[in-house]
Design a protein around this nucleic acid. Structure first.
Lengths: 235, 235
DNA sequence: CGACATGTTGATCTCGTTCAACTTCCGTGG
DNA sequence: CCACGGAAGTTGAACGAGATCAACATGTCG
């Protein structure tokens, strides 16, 4: 879909200041490594340091591997998202593509050095980090204190916000989920069976309709919000 | 302990560049609000936007309130830590002191505006955000995929890193925990009873010794790491 | 020293897991 | 275009880690 120059241009357009010099752009390009990942393929990309990743198109999951074959999906990312992949510490992190995906990876340290004094870039990075942190905290709340059905409701609402297409004036939304039930389970700290059962329950209750493996119609956003275990006032 | 000027000076020393002009410092000071919180007291501090908080001394917890009386401790913070408190969205956030605490609160937006063009400050903020994000992700892994005993082991190791005092050459460490069993439970997504039982189990297994409510001696850091559900190689 | 919060321990229950069988979806090749 | 096969998803039954309910112990502060 995108070739090498396309994706860097997209990055450039999304994240670099419009008045940045051509030389500076070239310096960033020199740091970037283009990755193309087919669906279901994983990428390690630990160069002895953190990585900064810009998603060109497609969809990926950031996975943390705890000790023995236990996987936790830390987050999902889509086109134009920016994320950091930690170097391997207490847990091993990897990126996997949910569908065919192109992304750009920068070594985090050198990227920051190159950005010394470029406030606009730093500010953009800061905002993206803040967004990641906010989402990570929401996830903490879900995993720490919510039931299986609340977690799934929160998940669907979160996905609707990011990749949903709105149907009748926002009362309902349509989702085309790129991730499998296993991915959802690994993201919500549940098993595939529990996720599947919760999908069925929601279907029975008329909250959602499903179409094939990936299509989900959120029939009533407000009802879903009520069942997501969040504050009522935020509905 | 600290008075108003003390805490701003500490902030200034920790986070502002050493070559920053006196005028600029005064501008930051004008944005800051000093808060003094007695142990067990909470502070809302939602001025219609996110807040940036610098902890002068003491210890605080960032708490998210899900719907009905369910609380999740999102993170603990100690002296010289910097954190963001999200404005109320899907969940309501508040800060509570674990012991008497002084902290500085800035409105996030204005702080950033004031920092326009000050790369050093932005970079510092960026690093602090990255640290918060890393910790939040570790927590996600713990809450998503670890057992009660692994969660407690991870928690104790994390606390040792931040507020522990090392005994015999690092093989064991001493902790003076400022938070109650309830706080620990709310942080780990467990109940106080489960946390208490896990403490007892660890004591029986010789992994820790406890002294009163807050004293914990981590007798064997390496054994604890093995039981924390992390990668072996990272031990 | 005494009172009451905080913490511990025990018995029972429950939500989500595990193990297992079955069904549906979807890509592939005839 | 359809039929086949395997992967993904669903459903059921039994189990278990942690929750809940309840009683008791201990630490800390007045």
């Amino acid at each position: 879909m995108s070739d090498t120059t396309d994706i860097f241009q997209r990055f450039s357009r999304c994240l670099l200041p419009s008045d940045l010099s051509a030389e500076a752009r070239i310096e960033y390009a020199a740091l970037a490594r283009v990755h193309t990942l087919k669906a279901d393929c994983a990428s390690q990309l630990d160069d002895g340091g953190d990585s900064l990743v810009f998603v060109g198109d497609g969809a990926i999951k950031l996975v943390a591997h705890a000790s023995d074959e236990r996987e936790q999906v830390v987050a999902f990312y889509f086109a134009e998202d920016l994320l950091t992949v930690p170097a391997n510490g207490a847990h091993r992190y990897s990126l996997s593509a949910l569908r065919n995906t192109n992304f750009l990876a920068f070594p985090y340290g050198p990227f920051l050095e190159r950005s010394q004094g470029h406030s606009e870039i730093l500010e953009t990075l800061l905002n993206r980090h803040a967004l990641s942190l906010k989402r990570s905290r929401e996830k903490t709340i879900a995993l720490g204190r919510k039931t299986a059905s609340e977690r799934l409701a929160s998940f669907l609402l979160g996905m609707a916000e990011r990749i949903g297409t709105s149907a009748d004036a926002g009362a309902s939304m349509l989702l085309d989920l790129p991730m499998s039930r296993r991915d959802i389970a690994d993201s919500l700290g549940l098993t595939i069976e529990t996720v599947s059962r919760q999908f069925s329950l929601m279907r029975e209750r008329g909250l959602i309709e499903t179409q094939g493996r990936s299509g989900v119609l959120l029939s009533s956003m407000s009802a879903l919000k009520q069942r997501s275990g969040s504050l009522q006032s935020a509905a």
